[in-house]
Amino acid sequence: MDNPDFSAQALRQAQVQMPEHGGRLRRAVAEYGIPLERWVDLSTGINPCGWTIPLIDNQTFMRLPENDDELEAAAAEYYGSSDLVPVAGSQEAIRELPRIRQQLFGESRVGVIAPGYEEHRYHWQLNGHQVERLAAEQIETELHRFDCLVLINPCNPSAVRFDQATLARWHQQLAARGGWLVIDEAFLDTEPQQSMIQPQMPSGLIVLRSLGKFFGLAGLRVGFLFADAEIRQMLSRAIGHWSIATPSRWLATRALWDTSWQQEARTWLESSRQRLVRLLEEALEDLPGSLQGRGLASTGLFVTVQIDDAAELAHRLAQQGILVRYFEPYSSLRFGLPGNEHEWRHLARSLTEATAAESQIQV
């Protein structure tokens, strides 16, 4: 006899399409016939000048992970709270939270910010919850209908921000009825004073952080969940003892300790953000239709533009070895930061040529 729980899960998985992501550089290499080394990959929003990996002892690779090393202490110091669980990138917490909610409360009504990182919507829906996409401007009036609200702050890819007072009010409203406010702060390291992480995490508030974006260490797969004791305990049981490899734990600890690099990185990223905003504004201002809606918005790690023919511009940039992220439903492009002067010049030249060609077609 078939296992009914497995069958239901398999059916949901078949009906829920897995999200697409940036960073598909090798697919672009095959599609456009441009060698890998000639590409400038701006599709991911990862710091292109990330923390420098030091020499690491070979013995580190020979040991199983130990939960009583220095990683938790380094993270508590950096984030300002010890109410945390290390996870294999915030993706592991994104996957497990809907399961934990299902175990505790059963099927829930979940509002997920849109546009946003689609893995949130995917896993809540995959685990049988009623999921509805919400635009930022809908949340205030629609919050009463939901048990959980899942946000990204600042939002990827829209760069919309939510202030702490608003988030605190929404958390109180949800927690009063046993609900959760889940905040993905993957892009908040450039402005850490805006974090909702608290020394003692209250019930119903869950915050996710990662070393992937600001530190430029996406390949380490190290992140953290901040929540109350019950959720932390359930997550720890779900992921087991060896979620993060020993070398990743060792390197993440030292990156979190490196306050000098962190300060320098924030200064460089802000300067680069401003430079990219100016470059895009100048390049796109003469396109037919110009920038629509909000037009251009940014975080410390990417700039998103909304234009009439985003797909065509993304294609023309790719023809010149510039890979950006295209969001079809919103006619938007997300540009990560170039990592050196060669990449800046390549982007500036490619934008000039791509927008000139597009303008000629549309005239």
Rank of each mutant, 00 (worst) to 15 (best):
P48H: 05
E343R: 04
L269H: 08
R12W: 11
Q193C: 06
S298N: 09
D147G: 05
M1A: 10
M1Q: 11
W242H: 11
I322Y: 11
I231Q: 09
S359F: 14
D286Q: 01
Q125V: 02
L317Q: 10
A176T: 12
E137G: 15
H129Q: 07
A14Q: 06
I361Q: 14
G23Y: 13
G106P: 09
Q130S: 12
S350H: 09
S260L: 04
Q233Y: 06
W124A: 01
S158Y: 02
L167D: 01
E341H: 14
S7M: 09
H342K: 00
Q17S: 14
G295N: 05
A75V: 02
S271F: 03
L217A: 09
A165T: 09
Q172F: 05
W180M: 00
R254T: 01
R221Q: 14
G289F: 04
V112Q: 02
L208E: 01
F146I: 00
L323S: 13
D258C: 01
R254H: 15
P329D: 14
T246N: 12
I244L: 04
V16R: 04
G111N: 01
V277A: 01
I206F: 06
E282T: 14
L291S: 08
N127S: 12
H315A: 08
D69P: 08
M62A: 09
V112Y: 00
G212Y: 01
R209D: 02
L323I: 10
L143K: 04
G339M: 06
I231L: 06
M18F: 10
L287S: 10
I206G: 03
E142H: 12
Q130G: 14
R249Y: 09
W124F: 12
W261K: 00
R63N: 13
S290F: 05
Y122R: 00
N340Q: 11
A245Q: 08
A168D: 06
D286W: 08
A114D: 05
E264D: 13
W180V: 03
R232Q: 15
L280E: 10
